[in-house]
Design a protein around this nucleic acid. Structure first.
Lengths: 181, 181
DNA sequence: AGATTTACGTCAGCCATGTTGACGCTTATG
DNA sequence: CATAAGCGTCAACATGGCTGACGTAAATCT
């Protein structure tokens, strides 16, 4: 194993506080790296669970957002995922074939297809959520409330302001009945 | 454009502080979502720059880590990227064909291939870094020093403890002369 | 010294997930 | 009634993962 080889002069246990001139290269790189490895590790467990069912990350993302906003139309999901409808259609086709997701005709606008999870879909999404949750809960718990707020603040700052409302809308309790355009 | 449709009851401008019981589902989901969108947006600019040269994200990751630890052997890079040698070899092949990366025989262990960037490789890596840097700098600046520390702390907590030394070693100034196993 | 292991290279094929372009249908809307 | 919007679908292609198998040089163990 080469694992140990990256270790040289060794590393303090706790993160060092951001310096007053916290915009220098080293601190930018640190953020980039932690974001990359943090994200990778967060989803690692879910990937395994997904693979066991013959599904991939793309399926998880769709399941996740549909769970988050039941009744969401396809167009909104496309905006969130930022992929083409052809890519999404493959994924949704798989999920529907497995009866994890169903479509219903929009009530206000009959051109729309509203997405929601079946009981089986919701159950799977819950399992996948738990894979992510364990890691996040531990990280939040060790870091403390203050750090979590900082974590949210920095990440929000990485998102272009015009995209933030879309993302913050996910956090509203109410399931989406889509507003008229 | 359906963008505006995800907007419903609307969103406060600044992030809300983590609640005392900050381990509940809503706050976990918020972290998951911000991490996903934050990461996606961070790399978006670099992706465009890469595509303009006919390269992909995989090439960037290799360039990035080689820039970070010049002289790093292949095995260490494999550990960081967590992919197979076959996947990496395609990427490194491309980078060498374009004379962005060179290999030299290991000094201590002649079986190893030490990786480093050519001048052109370093120049490209710098351009790509700047794509990421702009976003991160803005996010750090708006969030403030305290938030940045929290951001680091939570992300570090997402990484399994046994992997942290490898990642923290990236942040040591010194270029790697690989330690004997 | 000889056997074994390590570090790396390589060929071949497969899979997941993204892309572009084109065309069609139903429903809303001006 | 014409046009636009929301969605479905076919076809082809690119990227970047994967497995499996096999080879070679150098280090290490006995």
């Amino acid at each position: 194993m080469a694992d140990v080889n990256l270790l040289r002069a060794v590393s303090p246990a706790a993160p060092i506080a951001a310096s007053p001139q916290f915009l220098r290269e080293a601190e930018i790189r640190r953020g980039i790296e932690l974001l990359y490895f943090g994200y990778s590790n967060m989803v690692k467990g879910a990937d395994v669970h997904l693979a066991a069912q013959g599904l991939g990350r793309a399926h998880h993302r769709a399941l996740y957002f549909i769970a988050r906003r039941p009744g969401m139309p396809i167009g909104d999901l496309l905006d969130l995922l930022n992929i083409t409808k052809q890519s999404l259609s493959r994924v949704l086709g798989d999920l529907q074939a497995r009866e994890l997701v169903v479509q219903t005709v929009g009530t206000r606008d009959r051109r729309q297809r509203m997405l929601s999870l079946t009981a089986a879909g919701a159950a799977l999404e819950t399992e996948l959520f738990e894979c992510l949750r364990d890691g996040v809960t531990r990280a939040y718990g060790h870091a403390g409330q203050n750090a979590v707020t900082g974590f949210w603040t920095v990440l929000t700052g990485l998102i272009p302001p015009e995209d933030r409302p879309m993302i913050e809308a996910l956090q509203q309790a109410a399931p989406a009945e889509r507003s008229a355009a």
